[in-house]
């Protein structure tokens, strides 16, 4: 691909999704667009890109954007965040006794994050004292949402981050793949959501997991998404970002000792005591 084509692709992806492709990572273009090009009947990723430029076919554009923004993930990635959810956030919300507990896994990629949350909810159900929990999951990519919804994972995927006992408890072997139990599958509601869109129709949330997504956005898009998420949080809600991500600049309050966890109201640890 010529440098000017790469630049055009970068602008296209950034304009549609907010994701900035690191110029040093242009080697990703071929590995990510190659399979899509073949599926769509083009000989190479360059041919695919030329077709996109000529036809401006919206479906092809989105398929390319999705391919360029897909991310690897694992079950219980950054275990401390899930420990916080299980040990602190969830019991506090369960004790609140007003309305359902609403949780959103934004940018859920192939579903490991919402299913990790679902496993915790299933394991802690006795302590929830009948509180209603609504678990939503979304991604920019249709392909990701579809794969996540299927709950089907390779042997490699189920060995990243998932303790073996959780595998036995929550998955069934299906040929050489592993499928999440129907109980957990039914706990998650899936949607395709572009975080750059107006998020207000989604309603309010007590917990939003949005990790390693906005970090790759351009600064204005990142801030817009975080401000919108802040607006969606309930007064005792919190936003869980990646370990190295911050949300101080939009007026959310970091939780002490828990990198990446931000609260709508400061000092929830004190309030929970």
């Amino acid at each position: 691909m010529k440098p000017e084509d790469l630049e055009a692709l970068r602008l296209l992806v950034q304009g549609r999704s907010g994701v900035v492709i690191d110029p040093a990572k242009t080697y990703l273009v071929e590995t990510r667009l190659g399979p899509l090009a073949r599926r769509e009947g083009f000989a190479t990723h360059t041919e695919l890109f030329n077709a996109i430029r000529e036809t401006r076919d919206d479906r092809l554009i989105w398929a390319a954007v999705e391919a360029m923004t897909s991310n690897e993930t694992s079950f219980f990635r950054d275990k401390a965040a899930f420990d916080e959810f299980r040990g602190e956030i969830l019991p506090r919300l369960a004790a609140r006794k007003s309305g359902p507990i609403r949780i959103w896994s934004a940018a859920c990629a192939s579903g490991q994050e919402p299913y990790s949350l679902a496993m915790i909810l299933a394991e802690e159900s006795a302590k929830l004292e009948g509180a209603e929990v609504q678990l939503f999951a979304s991604d920019l990519s249709d392909a990701c949402v579809e794969k996540a919804r299927s709950g089907l994972y390779t042997q490699f995927e189920i060995q990243r981050g998932l303790p073996i006992r959780s595998l036995l408890n929550h998955f069934e072997k299906e040929g050489e793949m592993w499928r999440i139990s129907s109980r957990l599958m039914q706990m998650v509601r899936w949607r395709r959501i572009n975080l750059l869109a107006d998020l207000r129709p989604l309603g309010t949330f007590d917990v939003i997991f949005c990790r390693y997504a906005v970090a790759s956005f351009d600064p204005a898009s990142r801030k817009r998404v975080l401000e919108q998420m802040k607006g969606l949080l309930s007064p005792d809600g919190c936003l869980v970002l990646g370990l190295n991500e911050t949300a101080d600049d939009v007026g959310l309050f970091p939780l002490e000792g828990r990198p990446g966890v931000y609260c709508k109201t400061p000092g929830y640890k004190a309030a929970a005591a």
Binding site: Q155, F156, Q159, P163, I164, R165, L167, L168, E172, K173
Partner: peptide
């Protein structure tokens, strides 16, 4: 990689379990 075999290994005292091939 059969679930029954995995359970057998855990019952025998294994802490964790890796299915080959691994990386």
């Amino acid at each position: 990689n059969d679930p029954a075999r995995i359970a057998e290994a855990l019952d025998a005292g294994a802490n964790e379990y890796i299915m080959k091939p691994f990386d």
